[in-house]
């Protein structure tokens, strides 16, 4: 009897255990809040910590330094380009100033050359005028001299002719030719005419 009772008790216990197990794992539907099922907490916490540790390692060692480097590279490139642009602008300004200066210099140089040429030409002109004046003076003096000579010779010739004519006239009228008298007479008459 006792052994039979014991057997029944053990089978009953086994049945209840099976039923409990079926209730725990067999059914797929949740009873109450699964969030408050503390039996799953160690599992969740363990895997969460593993995941967070791996993520933290990956982010702090690989991802974040890389992104930081990319961002600072970009910032650097932008700053560099801006500075280069500023430099080019400065250079262009300098080139423009140099060009303007060269232009002004060239203009001044041309002005100077024109001025110098003008002065030179003026000098040459003055010299030529002076030379021409001198030549003209010389020629005039020479001409005057020749005119005087001609006049003088003309006067002598006239005197000679007058003398000859007077002597001829005197001799033809039968007078004796007094040379000195004739000369003085001619001189007297000519004085008024030739002066």
């Amino acid at each position: 009897m006792i052994s039979l009772l014991q057997e029944a008790a053990t089978t009953a216990a086994e049945h209840t255990e099976e039923a409990a197990e079926a209730a725990a794992h067999g059914s797929e539907s949740a009873s109450g809040l699964p969030q408050l099922d503390f039996s799953t907490f160690p599992n969740q916490i363990f895997w969460l910590i593993v995941t967070l540790a791996v993520l933290y390692w990956v982010l702090s060692r690989i991802a974040l330094p890389r992104i930081a480097a990319v961002l600072s590279d970009r910032q650097g490139a932008i700053t560099g380009d801006l500075m280069a642009a500023e430099e080019f602008k400065q250079k262009a300004k300098e080139a423009e100033a140099a060009y303007d200066k060269a232009l002004a210099d060239a203009r001044a140089e041309a002005q100077k050359i024109v001025e110098a040429n003008r002065a030179e030409i003026q000098k040459e002109l003055d010299a030529a005028v002076a030379h021409a004046d001198a030549e003209i003076g010389a020629r005039a003096a020479e001409s005057e001299k020749r005119i005087r000579e001609i006049r003088d010779s003309a006067a002598n010739d006239a005197r000679e002719v007058a003398r000859d004519v007077t002597a001829e006239l005197v001799s033809s009228f039968g007078g004796s030719v007094d040379q000195s008298a004739i000369d003085s007479a001619v001189e007297t008459r000519l004085k008024g005419a030739l002066q």
Binding site: H25, T40, P42, N43, Q44, F46, L48
Partner: peptide, 13 residues
């Protein structure tokens, strides 16, 4: 099926 131990790979994992 089975118990969820701390090391068991689950859908959370």
């Amino acid at each position: 099926e089975g118990d969820v131990h701390w090391y068991t790979p689950t859908n959370v994992t």
